[in-house]
Computed example of a mutant assay.
Amino acid sequence: MGRSPIDPRVRLSIELALTANNAMPSQFAKQEEAGRALGMTGAEMDVARRGSSFDFHTSIAVSLALHACRETRQRARDAGFSKETCEEIECLALSLRAQTA
């Protein structure tokens, strides 16, 4: 299996955004630890939990994960994301939503 086109920091930012309102304390602590291990600042993690990022491409990825629709897919494609990357982001979002349901 090939390497994921989604950077680990982007992946964690998506997870933070999707679990912001329902993360258990233990999950929250694991996310904080993972973010620090990836070199993310507390501010970066806080912004991700609010559904955004200081980084343009990460912000686009989080937006697509939160609100997958034709418009956000097109915005991601216009920002240089491949169709496969968009699909992977949407699959990741579905998986994370299923875990928290």
Rank of each mutant, 00 (worst) to 15 (best):
M1A: 15
R3N: 09
R3Q: 14
R3E: 12
S4I: 05
P5T: 13
D7P: 03
L12R: 09
L12Q: 07
I14M: 05
I14T: 02
E15G: 04
A17F: 04
L18V: 02
L18H: 01
L18Q: 09
T19H: 02
T19P: 00
A20W: 05
N21T: 09
P25D: 02
Q27I: 13
Q27R: 14
F28R: 13
F28T: 06
F28A: 12
F28H: 06
A29E: 13
A29L: 13
K30N: 11
Q31A: 14
Q31M: 12
E32L: 13
G35H: 12
A37T: 02
L38S: 04
L38K: 06
M40W: 04
T41H: 06
T41K: 08
E44C: 09
E44D: 13
E44R: 08
A48C: 05
R50G: 15
G51A: 05
G51P: 09
S52Q: 10
S53F: 07
F56Q: 03
H57K: 15
T58L: 00
T58H: 02
A61R: 10
A61N: 11
V62R: 07
S63D: 11
L66D: 06
L66R: 14
A68C: 00
C69A: 08
E71A: 14
R75P: 00
R75G: 00
A76G: 02
R77C: 02
R77S: 11
D78C: 01
A79M: 07
G80A: 12
G80L: 09
S82T: 15
S82I: 08
S82K: 08
T85H: 00
E87T: 12
E88Y: 01
E88Q: 12
E90N: 10
L92K: 01
L94T: 09
S95V: 04
L96F: 10
Q99Y: 12
T100D: 14
T100L: 13
T100V: 12
